[in-house]
Amino acid sequence: MVLVATALWVSFLSAGVATMLFFATFDPQEIGNLATYPIELDRLSGYSIGFLMFWALLSCNSFAVLWLSNTEPG
């Protein structure tokens, strides 16, 4: 449980940094307009979904690292 919390917390912090860096350069509204299929993306939604996606991805990364470090093949 502690490992789960650690993975989630560290990826939360990293996701925060990632969000700030990414969205300082790219405008969510523009991203919505240029998307594969045009989507109505207001900025608050864009930032929120972006942050949560970063968090989810970085969490998966952390869980994978923890799992591989704590298990051996066979």
């Binding site: 502690v2 490992l3 799992w67 704590n70 298990t71 051996e72 066979g74």
Partner: peptide, 16 residues
């Protein structure tokens, strides 16, 4: 013999 590490190998002693 290859060790089969448990997921919390050693970590449980770090958390009280």
């Amino acid at each position: 013999t290859p060790k089969k590490a448990t997921p919390n190998n050693g970590a449980s002693s770090l958390y009280a």
